[in-house]
Design a binder for these strands. Structure first.
Lengths: 141, 141
DNA sequence: ACCTCTTTGACTTTATTTGACCTTTATATT
DNA sequence: AATATAAAGGTCAAATAAAGTCAAAGAGGT
């Protein structure tokens, strides 16, 4: 395990996984004490590892009896995978932004439309997201 | 006389071969120290010897506790569809013939290398052939 | 001599960690 | 009831620690 941030992330995720309701509630100062770090470190971990994008929701309250509650949203919402329509829309966007040429966009859309035809949904959703990410990696890197 | 680049390449490939998961993780500055060279030399080695085209994938993280991870992708052969190697060779050919631009070729190769990783052989061989055919359909049509 | 591949280093970008200061809330005191 | 105090969590910027970029200089082969 690498950084302190990674350790705290891992610790919290274990707690969440062990809970029955996908939630965990902590006290910032106390957790900071456990890991011998600044309280703002905890805030940092939340801000980088438990974002909405990653499928988490956090609530907190200040003052006496304050707390931080982290909730993991259901897997459905963080499913990696794009439907055919989503994938095509993404490609269109990339083209509008000038990241993809028209020809490249056509090429990717054609690939995507071919792939949808012969596989079941789960796999083709996955493949589509890999195609988009694979393309972006080249184009933006 | 082999170059430093060759030595570093060899060193990393030995590490990967000895690993059980076809991966190795290094710290750029540390490896540079080991070989008494500039850190950017390591970046150069990765860029010339551990490319997607050669069947490797690299990930990295900057900042505190940063790292570089290199993974060798598997290349397995199957009767139906295209192996990773065959697919990459085909793309290279298309590029030589001026049918694909360099950028398009890179894009496709990256997609192919991504897809190989998480699926079983039969499916990924199939997908590869669909990608090539899908691309050709647009480019030649 | 020329061309290609290597090697370097100055500069850039990104990630983590900390601490000083700020805001909010509950509770105790007047 | 109004106010003061203590007990939380929040913000933000600086310090530090990596890796990435890119152009220029160097080396080897033809």
């Amino acid at each position: 395990m690498r950084s302190l941030t990674d350790k705290i992330e891992c610790y919290l995720k274990v707690l969440i996984d062990r809970s029955d309701d996908y939630k965990v509630e902590i006290q910032r100062a106390e957790l900071a004490e456990t890991f011998q770090c600044a309280p703002s470190q905890i805030t940092y971990v939340l801000g980088t590892r438990f974002t909405a994008e990653e499928g988490f929701r956090t609530e907190s309250k200040r003052g006496g009896r304050g707390f931080i509650r982290i909730q993991k949203l259901s897997e459905k919402r963080l499913a990696v995978g794009l439907t055919q329509e989503q994938a095509c829309m993404t490609i269109d966007d990339l083209m509008s932004q000038g990241i993809l040429t028209v020809r490249e966009a056509k090429l990717l859309i054609n690939i995507i439309n071919r792939i949808i035809m012969n596989l079941d949904d789960e796999i083709s959703d996955y493949i589509r997201s890999e195609i988009i990410e694979g393309a972006l990696e080249v184009l933006e890197g």
